[in-house]
């Protein structure tokens, strides 16, 4: 495979991706959903991400793994510009979503965040009814009929595999649900606004094994429709659900590649140590 220097990078038929060590991924530029180039990010004076370059494929599950504090959440939050709120954060480098720079001044941040949905580590349903939680994003868009909102709420709850458990009590407070149900509610809420990308920051870390399995199943069923990015500390989970895995350490991208390859034949010693549990924290 050759690299044609005259074409813009993202239009290359096959791309050299990830780290400077030249990992080669088997997806075309047209299949690239998020394109991160030379991203450096610092909280005040403290650098959290160092010159990251990687591409995230469309309609696949990409997992970010790495020890605590390595910058996984920071990277995830950079993808929907949640850092904008923090005045201390400084950033260099670009992120393209479907070929468009997300930091372009013409980009409406709210619309970007709708397209790039995010589910946080701890379930954060709003203190409203289950129904209102799911309808929240829809109502922001305005102009939707009651009937249409009803439909979308039902569809979103079904997509998040929560419908059967809550259909009889949509008006009940969302805070009356269990932790696992709350997390699926938050996913349903995010799905309701039909995002193109779904960022999941350790979505199952606070859940029991059964709820975790439900979330993993959900991720698999969503894959044909969405680009998913998953942060996890659970190696088995990453291996089970992701197609690609990126290993971060100290704010740097150490290794990135297809999950099967990365877990069975890691190219680097550091990756192998982390995966096999020899390197902790």
């Amino acid at each position: 495979m050759s690299i044609d220097g005259e074409l813009p990078k993202r239009q290359l038929a096959q791309a050299r991706l990830g780290n400077r060590r030249g990992a080669v991924m088997e997806f075309s530029a047209a299949d690239t959903c998020l394109d991160i180039q030379g991203l450096t990010l610092a909280y005040g004076g403290k650098t959290a991400l160092k010159d990251l370059t990687l591409r995230i494929p469309r309609h696949r599950v990409t997992a970010f793994i790495g020890p605590s504090g390595c910058g996984k959440s920071t990277l995830l939050r950079a993808l929907n510009r949640l850092h904008d709120l923090n005045e201390d954060v400084s950033r260099h480098g670009q992120i393209h979503l479907d070929g468009h720079d997300i930091h372009d001044p013409r980009v409406a941040v709210a619309e970007l965040r709708r397209r790039v949905g995010m589910v946080f580590q701890a379930p954060n349903p709003f203190p409203m009814s289950i129904y209102d939680n799911v309808a929240f994003g829809l109502r922001l868009q305005g102009g939707l009929s009651k009937r249409r909102i009803d439909d979308v709420v039902e569809w979103a709850l079904k997509s998040a595999a929560l419908w059967d458990e809550v259909k009889g009590r949509l008006r009940a407070s969302a805070w009356s649900l269990s932790g696992g149900q709350q997390q699926r509610l938050v996913i349903a809420r995010t799905l309701a606004v039909e995002p193109e990308v779904l960022l999941l920051d350790e979505p199952a870390s606070a859940l029991d094994p059964i709820s975790t399995l439900k979330i993993e199943e959900l991720i698999r069923t969503l894959k044909p429709h969405l680009t998913l990015v998953l942060v996890t500390h659970n190696m088995q989970q990453a291996a089970r659900v992701s197609d690609y895995t990126a290993f971060l350490h100290n704010g740097e991208l150490v290794e990135y590649g297809p999950t099967d390859t990365l877990f069975t034949h890691p190219r680097l010693r550091r990756t192998e140590n982390y995966i096999t549990g020899r390197m902790v924290g």
Partner: peptide, 25 residues
């Protein structure tokens, strides 16, 4: 909590909408 505000922002709410629909209530 910050994560309540971020939850609203991540759904495409503007800062003003986050304030009026989540924070103030």
């Amino acid at each position: 909590p910050l994560h309540q505000r971020e939850g609203a922002l991540a759904l495409g709410a503007t800062r003003f909408e986050t304030l009026t629909r989540v924070v103030l209530p």
